[in-house]
Amino acid sequence: QDRYTISEVVAFTGLTAHTLRWYERIGLMPHVDRSHTGQRRYTNRDLDWLEFVNKLRLTGMPVADMVRYAELVREGESTYAERQELLESTRRDVLARIAELHDTLAVLDRKISFYATER
């Protein structure tokens, strides 16, 4: 199957129908095909794109940067360098957050250890 209704995509992705419509409105989703009755019909390619967008969201990438990335994808291969830089910048941010989380985890471990020895 390569045609899914918005309710099926909601079930697959965990996103809300409102979010899917918003993604389309702001240009984060490429053009979504419609049935003869006007109902959205998503493809497997759309589902793959939504999976990638969800990963970008998890990185903390600003929505404006995600929309910019989507625009670059639509512009074609000539934008590879700009796309790569955008992803590399996001990767640096993720690594910095991971380092902060490791530091935070170390603080928590010290506190837990302290309380464990005080009993």
Results as ranks from 00 to 15, higher is better:
Arg83Asp: 07
Arg3Cys: 07
Arg97Leu: 08
Val10His: 04
Glu77Arg: 11
Val53Met: 06
Ser89Lys: 14
Leu28Arg: 05
Tyr42Asn: 09
Thr59Phe: 05
Asp48Val: 09
His31Pro: 14
Lys55Cys: 13
Val67Tyr: 02
Arg57Glu: 09
Tyr69Cys: 04
Thr5Tyr: 06
Ser89Val: 12
Glu8Asp: 02
Arg34Val: 08
Thr13Asp: 03
Gln1Trp: 08
Asp103Val: 03
Met29His: 07
Gly27Tyr: 02
Ala11Trp: 00
Leu108Lys: 15
Glu24Gln: 13
Val53Asp: 01
Ala106Met: 10
Ala99Leu: 07
Thr59Leu: 06
Gln39Lys: 06
Arg92His: 12
Arg3Gln: 12
Arg41Gln: 15
Glu85Pro: 06
Leu56Ser: 02
Val63Asn: 06
Thr43Pro: 01
Arg21Phe: 01
Thr117Pro: 03
Arg119Lys: 10
Tyr115Gln: 12
Leu15Ile: 03
Tyr80Ile: 12
Val94Gly: 04
Gln1Ile: 11
Ala116Ser: 13
Leu58Ser: 15
Arg34Trp: 05
Thr13Lys: 02
Ile112Gly: 14
Val67Leu: 05
Leu15Ala: 09
His31Ala: 13
Asp109Gln: 15
Leu86Cys: 05
Val94Gln: 02
Arg91Gln: 13
Val67Ser: 05
Asp46Arg: 00
Arg74Ala: 04
Thr104His: 10
Met66His: 02
Ser89Tyr: 10
Ala64Gly: 12
Phe114Glu: 14
Asp65Tyr: 03
Asp46Trp: 00
Ile6Lys: 07
Arg110Phe: 11
Ser35Leu: 08
Gly76Ala: 01
Gln84Lys: 09
Tyr4Trp: 04
Ser113Pro: 09
Glu85Ala: 12
Arg21Lys: 13
Trp22Ala: 15
Ala17Pro: 10
Glu85Cys: 08
Arg68Asp: 10
Arg91Phe: 01
Asn44Asp: 06
Ser35Thr: 14
Asn44Arg: 07
Ser7Val: 08
Gly76Met: 01
Ile98Arg: 09
Pro62Val: 02
Val9Ile: 01
Gln84Ser: 02
Thr79Phe: 02
Gln84Met: 04
Glu51Gln: 15
Tyr42Val: 05
Leu58Pro: 11
Tyr80Cys: 09
Ala116Pro: 08
Glu8Tyr: 02
Leu108Asp: 14
Arg3Ser: 12
Arg40Cys: 05
Val32Phe: 04
Thr117Lys: 14
Leu101Phe: 01
Pro62Leu: 05
Gly38Val: 02
Glu71Pro: 07
Gly76Lys: 03
Ala64Arg: 14
His31Lys: 13
Leu50Phe: 01
Tyr23Pro: 09
Arg3Trp: 00
Asp48His: 10
Trp22Ile: 13
Pro62Gly: 04
Arg25Thr: 11
Asp2Ala: 02
Val67Trp: 00
Thr59Ser: 12
Arg40Asp: 06
Leu108Tyr: 12
Arg97Gln: 12
Thr19Asp: 04
Glu71Phe: 03
Asp65Cys: 10
Glu8Cys: 00
Glu100Leu: 07
Ala99His: 07
Asp46Val: 01
Leu50Thr: 00
Leu50Gly: 04
Asn54Ile: 13
Leu87Thr: 04
Asp33Thr: 11
